[in-house]
């Protein structure tokens, strides 16, 4: 299973792997916000937690359809399914690889973009903590959505439609955590809830994703 992870990471780094695209999207999205809402720093500071979380979420969403699609098209998925690696393990590794190539860079980039949006000082550790604990759930949910739609041609739009409602609780708690920290309130509770959703998603969704893969491979 470690081999799967290693291969996915190698493929992401090689040319055409799309590594960094999500990060670039996050950057552009955040940069566009002030053009839309105006340059007033108070307003930006107020909406920064939500914008940063929303940007991270959309950046995650952008790369979901690649999770299984390429392996499906070149026949690798068939061959892995007949290998000793269980499909649950494959789904978990795919989610992990997606998180390392997408979620982790977003966590690292978020404070810099927070500066652009004038995010108040005390919120930075909470921003990184909530993204670090929350983006794995986004990857796990996205992997499930990708497994559902892998057999569908041009399933990218459908994938977004299926996955976005599932992202709502993570987004609510994640953004709330940062917003509370920015206004000097206690942010522990939403952070714990984000971590709880992530723990649940990581524990259960690989099984749902594997079930969906099995149906699609029949």
């Amino acid at each position: 299973m470690i081999g799967l992870l290693k291969r996915d990471l190698t493929l992401a780094i090689r040319a055409g792997g799309g590594f960094g695209l999500s990060l670039a999207f996050f950057l552009i999205f955040t940069t566009l916000v002030p053009f839309g809402v105006g340059p007033q720093t108070q307003i930006l500071a107020e909406i920064a937690p939500g914008i940063l979380w929303l940007g991270a979420l959309l950046a995650c969403l952008l790369s979901l359809d690649r999770i299984f699609q390429l392996d499906w098209e070149d026949g690798t998925l068939d061959l892995v399914a007949t290998s000793p690696v269980p499909l649950e393990g494959l789904a978990a590794m795919k989610a992990l690889a997606h998180w390392i190539t997408t979620g982790l860079p977003l966590v690292a980039a978020a404070p810099v973009l927070g500066l652009l949006l004038n995010l108040p000082g005390p919120a930075y550790p909470w921003l990184m903590a909530s993204l670090a604990l929350g983006t794995p759930a986004l990857s796990a949910i996205g992997t499930f959505g990708a497994a559902l739609t892998v057999g569908i041609k041009r399933g990218g739009l459908l994938l977004s439609l299926l996955v976005l409602p599932l992202y709502i609780p993570t987004l609510i708690f994640g953004a709330l955590c940062v917003a509370r920290a920015a206004t000097g309130q206690d942010a522990t509770t939403p952070l714990v809830l984000v971590a709880g959703i992530t723990a649940g998603a990581l524990a259960l969704l690989p099984f749902a994703a594997a079930a969906a893969l099995r149906v699609n491979l029949r």
Binding site: T10, R14, G75, T82
Partner: peptide, 13 residues
């Protein structure tokens, strides 16, 4: 061990 029509290779590797 199963081998299908598709090669199952990664062109970047």
């Amino acid at each position: 061990a199963y081998a299908a029509h598709a090669d199952g290779l990664k062109s970047a590797l």
